[in-house]
Write a protein that binds this DNA or RNA. Structure first.
Lengths: 169, 169
DNA sequence: CTGTATCCCAGCGGATACTG
DNA sequence: CAGTATCCGCTGGGATACAG
């Protein structure tokens, strides 16, 4: 989000890169990639806008309508996402039409896809089937998401060890 | 979040399952698994609490300290996560100590792991290396995350087709 | 069609104080 | 150690109106 505020008192010096977070646990802002990722994307609405982008939405109106937020909110969150580098506004021109701008995923934004895929799979599994299916265009098989180690093993929660994390407390 | 509010005006009848969202796009609350997943987890803080749970944190104080939120906030979000079914409070007793409660991941919560893994990988790749490494306990290899289809192909953004989504607009 | 400006409300979160 | 109670400010978000 790269915004000020939200976390009450904190010196400017503690704000690194994507920002803020508590001096008590220096861990947060400096190191934790999850914290930084959530921070970079922003709010719930931003997540949904990213979803729309993956679904192929490019026009402002469609973003607002399909995500179900008001125009001012859509404008603000889209701007945030552009600032964060996940989306970009590119001009285009349909034949015979005037010049327009559309929102498109940057490489950084495109690479966010596994997060959305993982969320989709989890939601379908634990919150009841949604009736929505995502298929691989090339082969038609359904798309899943998960974690694995570089040796190729699937990795579940608890199968991991962390290194490089600052001592807690 | 399973909370009221936030979305201004909307009849109770439109609130389905995990809640709220705009009647304009019936799609939201009913179908979109991503919207429901984000909704179920809740806020930024809830994400970070889930991260801590995966890192092995079980005690209230540690959650508050390591996530960097005040006790009231930690209490509220942890309660939400328990209500949502991601965490559970289980009693335990160390020898010679009094009875305690600890927060533990439910199966539903454990299965959220791929989302966190994907966020971690994305954060490290696009927001700069964090210095944190997650390794597979069994083999020591680093853990990644991504999407693939059931035929085994890796799937990137744009390689997908959606089915079952209500017509937008 | 693609936004911006303004006003208002409500939830999240910080701080402090207090209980078991 | 594990919370709860209270107060208060900030940001996100809805609604409406207006602009390029």
């Amino acid at each position: 989000m790269v915004k000020s505020g939200t976390v009450g008192r904190m010196s400017e010096a503690t704000v690194i890169m994507t920002g803020k977070l508590d001096p008590r646990s220096g861990w947060e802002a400096r190191s934790c990639p999850i914290a930084r990722a959530v921070e970079a994307v922003g709010t719930r609405t931003a997540f949904l806008l990213m979803r729309e982008a993956f679904y192929g939405t490019t026009r402002f109106d469609d973003f607002a309508l399909r995500v179900g937020v008001s125009e001012p909110v859509a404008a603000a969150r889209l701007k945030d996402l552009v600032t964060a580098g996940l989306l970009e506004r590119v001009p285009y021109q349909d034949p015979g039409q005037r010049r327009r701008l559309e929102y498109r995923l940057t490489p950084m934004g495109s690479d966010f896809f596994p997060v959305l895929a993982a969320l989709m799979r989890w939601g379908d599994r634990w919150l009841g089937p949604s009736g929505v299916q995502m298929r691989h265009r090339d082969c038609g098989a359904e798309v899943g998401a998960g974690a694995w180690c570089e040796a190729g093993h699937p990795v579940a929660a608890g199968d991991t060890e962390l290194a490089g994390r600052p001592a807690p407390g």
